[in-house]
Amino acid sequence: MSTRLPALITHLAHRHVSVPGLLHSGFGGTEIDQAHRDVLDHLAHAVTAERHRVDEAAQTVMRGATTVIQALSHQMRSKIDEMQHRYDDPGLAQHLLGLDHLNEQNLRHIQGTGVLCGAWPGLTHADSHLGDIVAGAQSRIRGYHRVQVTSQMEAPVAVVARAVEPIAITVAELLANALHHTHGTLAIDVSLHQAESGACVVIDDAGVGMHSDETEFASRLLSGQRTILLTELGDPPRTGFAKISRLMRQYGFSVSIDKSSPYGGVRAVVFIPGNLLTLLDEHTHPMSAMAPLPRPTSPTRTGTLPTGDAGGTGGTGEGLPRRRRRDAQPAGHLPAARPDQAPTPEETQATWSAFQAGTASGRAASRTDHLEGNH
């Protein structure tokens, strides 16, 4: 037992480590063998239960800490918004935009850590256009200017209120992962698609791809078939897919990762089922300036939105407001980004104005409901 017990402890944390059998195989099937198995089973149960207890206690501490920090970040956001509306000097706008973006990145990490530890995302929204959600997720990450979004949808598909923030968190994590694994001169291609049973956000990168162990780790987390422990996320912790896994189980959408990107990198697909979708009247709920425009409606439609909630448009999808499509890049072409070219004050002012228009409605519709720890 001096060999088998330590091996079992290691095996519970690292499944590839095997537990040796009896030193003397002649005792196999005897009462001695059964007694050994009983001891190993009891020890495994006790160690597993203790690991889960300790992990839950750690998550409780982290959840409480992130709630306070998240609330402070939201207050910082409000102060920055106030300053952005008060001053219109291009030079100052450039500094405020940078400060706002840093705060958004900080908020994404804090919010994601809270979600990983079982906290509610902390924001509520109205029903929101899928394009606006993706644009909002883009604004939360470093290197947002390298993300290029197009829409292949014919209708202004929207996500119902309860799923808006979880989808935004998920898309932001996938974009951050794609940017991390892709050279700084290459862009990330994001496209929105409508399916018979829902809608998809497809993220393609031209990066170095994922090793087999990384793919296996991501697939295991995204399967949702096992409890996630903080101690299993490595050092430094690989938290992105773990956060997504929790949100998938809670809200009912799915995410898949594979190496099928046409640019040689990784493709991530967020599938949003029809029960989480709706249609919004663009006259009363216009899309922001940052959202990609739906493509023109073809004479023969291949499918309609698979949900009974049509957001006041009649429920059939017929006669929806039409928009002119923005020019898209040719298929298979991934344009280069411009990471080293510093913007002029006038370009910064234009960027700030666009971001202000694209995020103001979402921020106005959201609120923090847990300033003092309510989840």
Rank of each mutant, 00 (worst) to 15 (best):
R322G: 02
Q356I: 05
G362V: 00
A328T: 13
Q356C: 06
T351Q: 14
G362K: 00
A364I: 08
E347L: 09
H333N: 03
A331R: 04
A357W: 05
G319V: 07
P345Y: 09
A365K: 03
A354W: 06
R324H: 00
R322W: 01
R363H: 12
A350M: 10
E346C: 04
R363C: 04
G332N: 01
G358F: 00
G319D: 05
R323F: 00
A336F: 09
R326L: 03
P339W: 09
E346V: 08
A354H: 07
R326I: 02
Q356T: 13
P339C: 14
R338H: 09
S353T: 12
S361K: 08
E347Y: 13
A336V: 03
T316S: 15
R325I: 00
H333P: 00
R338K: 08
S366P: 08
D369C: 12
A336L: 09
Q349A: 10
R363I: 06
L371I: 14
P321V: 07
A350T: 08
E347D: 15
T348I: 07
R322Y: 07
A337G: 06
G319Y: 11
R326Q: 04
A364R: 11
A360R: 05
A328N: 13
R322Q: 10
A365E: 01
R324C: 00
G358K: 01
E318C: 10
G362N: 03
Q349P: 05
W352T: 14
L371S: 11
H333Y: 06
T316K: 10
R326D: 05
E347H: 11
T368N: 14
A336G: 08
A342T: 15
D369Q: 11
A336D: 02
A350I: 11
F355K: 15
R326S: 13
D369G: 14
S361Q: 11
A336P: 01
D369N: 13
G317R: 07
D340Y: 11
F355I: 08
R363K: 02
W352F: 10
W352R: 14
G315T: 11
G362C: 01
H333W: 04
Q341S: 11
T351W: 09
H333G: 01
E318D: 13
S366L: 03
T368M: 15
T368E: 10
G332W: 02
Q341R: 09
A342N: 14
R323K: 01
P345G: 12
T351R: 13
D340N: 11
D340F: 12
P335R: 05
T316A: 14
Q341C: 07
L320T: 02
H370Q: 10
F355M: 09
L371H: 15
S366V: 03
T344G: 13
A342V: 15
L371E: 15
R325K: 02
L334C: 04
P339M: 12
L320V: 02
F355V: 07
G362A: 02
A337K: 02
P330V: 00
G319C: 04
A350N: 08
A354K: 05
A337L: 06
P335N: 02
T368G: 14
A337V: 04
L371R: 12
P343K: 07
T368Q: 15
P321S: 04
T348G: 06
Q341A: 11
R324K: 01
A336S: 13
G317F: 08
F355G: 07
T359V: 04
G319T: 06
H370V: 09
L371G: 15
E318L: 11
P321H: 05
A364M: 08
L371Q: 13
